[in-house]
Design a protein around this nucleic acid. Sequence first.
DNA 1: ATTTGTGAACGCATTCACAGCT
DNA 2: AGCTGTGAATGCGTTCACAAAT
Lengths: 218, 218
Amino acid sequence: MERQVPEPTTRRLSLYLRVLADMEAGEVETTSSEQIARRCNLNPAQVRKDLAHFGGFGIRGVGYDVAGLRQAVAGILGLDRERPVLIVGAGNLGSALADYPGFNTGGFRIVALLDIDPAKIGTRTRRGAPVCPLEQLEDLVAKHGVEMAIIAVPAPAAPEVVDRLVAAGIRTVLNFAPVRPVVPDGVHVRHVDLKVELESLSFFLAEDEGDGEEEEDA
Amino acid sequence: MERQVPEPTTRRLSLYLRVLADMEAGEVETTSSEQIARRCNLNPAQVRKDLAHFGGFGIRGVGYDVAGLRQAVAGILGLDRERPVLIVGAGNLGSALADYPGFNTGGFRIVALLDIDPAKIGTRTRRGAPVCPLEQLEDLVAKHGVEMAIIAVPAPAAPEVVDRLVAAGIRTVLNFAPVRPVVPDGVHVRHVDLKVELESLSFFLAEDEGDGEEEEDA
DNA sequence: ATTTGTGAACGCATTCACAGCT
DNA sequence: AGCTGTGAATGCGTTCACAAAT
């Protein structure tokens, strides 16, 4: 019954938030859909339509109040409160993500990393996040009220990890494992498939190379 | 003049390749669009339409030869040759990406990482990729015939890095920096914006929380 | 004069449904 | 009988274009 917000819109809101924060830091008081759009490589109508899902934030003939809109967008994205995050997998990638600046600011806080490797357990990342045994998954979720998790485990382990996370109460998952586990309704998974990104880029190179076989119009 | 291939198709081809490689490893000889689709959470017609952009690979009434189709898809994606890759930025993320298994198999090879931090230059990642001074960018591109680069530098440095890469002859970029540099036609950039992914996931949590303001139908 | 908010038009990708092979 | 390949239909997001507001 709630108005349905397209996924591309939710992604762009995050972009808007970034440029608005930039503007605010740069002492800009007022802006327009055109300025925002230009800095995101988008169409101004796109910006207005995205915002229109949530109400009228601008003044016709004038534009948007930077600080006010920034706060509004942060609220829409639920970034006006603390968001504890759990990372499963303390390998190269998991550890790098734990220290990633964007995952430790603007509402997010990496609570801990989970792993099964005894050598890693008990250590901490550079930023201080502890590496805990996987068994503590359920306890940590409950204790910190965690609703977001990041998966950075090898592909074979991922499906089971997802199941455990969901059973523990996690409702959003950022998945770096090269598999697409199925989750129940109400749980949202976003896949970051690094190999897919690189391979699909390679396609453009192959296209230009002609690939060896050039049989077209006679 | 060439038939235009939708970007979503190129991404899915990479998924198909993975599934087909799995099947081949599992001694499966023949498959169908339905089997492939199920393992990718897709519609069978989608699989067939994607493949149809490049020709008829199947046999009606029978299906697809796993090994043959895998090889064909690898060829389409240009993964039947070596693809040297350069990573710019040897921080946490860049280093993790350099050691990422998917970036060192199936055609890809991380040639080197580039950085400006003297403390990092001269070191090597666990897998053995050397960290070189940024000044060597152009030389390394030329020497190894690099056409793909990965950007893992802080946001402010990214636009200039992209310009240099493009000037040096790079034609595909996988960008992890939270900015969207504009590039000339013929250069392809794929953005992996980790903060956007996490923030847009947070939206779903906010949605369910009601956000404080619940003024709807009277 | 300027810029928002939005219904209408457009374009594109996904899905359907069936004809065509094996 | 079974599965592919594909034109037609559908659905969805983007862009246009303009009325409304300051």
